[in-house]
């Protein structure tokens, strides 16, 4: 059985009349990557700050695995807890250089002295900051600051890593680097929290997603399970070649006829008015189906067998990001009503 490394238990945090965190409970296993998704002011950062002990909860408990393999209340003596690393908010640093900063942070957590220099060099290399090693942080761009913030969070090789909007300000290459590094950390058994607005990043790296709104966790599950909550589900079917424009309507009509048993019957008009639509620029069909796995299999078989002469399928997939976007909107809106 996978070991539990962190438990949030009935957490409440109020700022005056505002309840920023409202009865949040969560259990996280070793090696999981948890995505924290929610609108601005939903309570994501506040929850992370509670875990970081930067603020205290009004009530509730946070239990974290200690070095003896037992869960221990964070509010007590925290010296025996497993190492944690944090990137909270946009990072701000003392006006020093990355080498000194990283050395200081690692020393604070007793990272082995003999490995430290190599560790700093390795991480600076991974994130392309080697030539900035001895340059003052005040001269860094936003993206470089963010990358350094990420390195600070992991420099001492923590077991639990808390990342608040780690992709903010990063260029596409750096995002890929960070994403890749997060996955490599998971392979090493690290447990990671990622709070982000960037749903694509969340879907790419997270095993489980906690949807948070108005201080409460509305849903907490794997993306696949969360997708089951969607009233409407879609499939994107990309074609190798575009279909001739004059044949488009005919093919769509034929498709609707053939796929009728599997299509969504109560399609939300705010999502689409047609169960099947064609995007000529992307050379793809969007098919809104009833969400059953068997239906998906049947749809694929029909497309391959019955439309051989009309088009060739290049890819057939559920768009994870847009699913999450829709799920996010649906749940947040439902919750607001």
């Amino acid at each position: 059985m996978t070991e539990t490394v962190l438990i949030l238990e009935n957490l409440y945090k109020r700022f005056g009349n505002l309840t920023a965190v409202n009865n949040v409970s969560l259990e996280v296993k070793r090696g999981e990557i948890i995505g924290f998704v929610g609108p601005n002011g939903a309570g994501k950062t506040t929850t992370l700050k509670l875990i970081a002990k930067l603020i205290k909860p009004n009530s509730g408990n946070i239990f974290i695995l200690n070095k003896q393999g037992k869960l221990q209340n964070l509010q007590g003596n925290s010296k025996n807890l497993v190492e944690m690393g944090f990137l909270i908010d946009i990072p701000h640093f003392y006006n020093s250089n990355p080498y000194r900063l990283l050395k200081y942070i690692a020393n604070l957590r007793n990272y082995p002295k003999e490995k430290l220099k190599q560790r700093i060099d390795d991480l600076l290399t991974v994130f392309n900051l080697t030539k900035w090693k001895y340059k003052k942080v005040k001269n860094f761009s936003k993206g470089m600051i963010q990358k350094l913030g990420f390195i600070v969070a992991i420099i001492h090789d923590p077991e639990i890593i808390i990342l608040d909007e780690p992709q903010t300000g990063l260029d596409p290459n750096a995002r890929i680097d960070v994403r890749r590094y997060i996955r490599s950390l998971q392979k090493k058994g690290k447990t990671i929290f990622v709070a982000s607005h960037m749903l694509y990043e969340i879907t790419e790296v997270c095993d489980k997603i906690a949807l948070i709104n108005q201080g409460s966790i509305i849903e907490f599950d794997t993306l696949d399970n969360l997708e089951n909550l969607l009233r409407t589900k879609e499939i994107i079917c990309e074609l190798l070649e575009p279909i001739p424009i004059e044949k488009k309507d005919l093919i769509i009509t034929k498709l609707i006829q053939r796929l009728k048993p599997y299509l969504e019957k109560n399609l939300d008009p705010s999502i689409s008015t047609d169960p099947i639509s064609y995007n000529s620029q992307k050379k793809s069909f969007t098919i809104y189906y009833n969400g059953m796995d068997l239906s998906r299999t049947n749809i694929l078989q029909i497309l391959v067998n019955d439309f051989k002469s009309d088009f060739t399928i290049d890819s057939f997939s559920k768009p994870r990001t847009s699913q999450l976007e829709r799920l996010y909107t649906q749940i947040i809106n439902d919750n607001a009503q």
Binding site: F86, D89, H92
Partner: peptide, 12 residues
Amino acid sequence: KNKTGLEVLPLI
């Protein structure tokens, strides 16, 4: 004010 505490206070 400078939010440098966000980096060090969770660790020390």
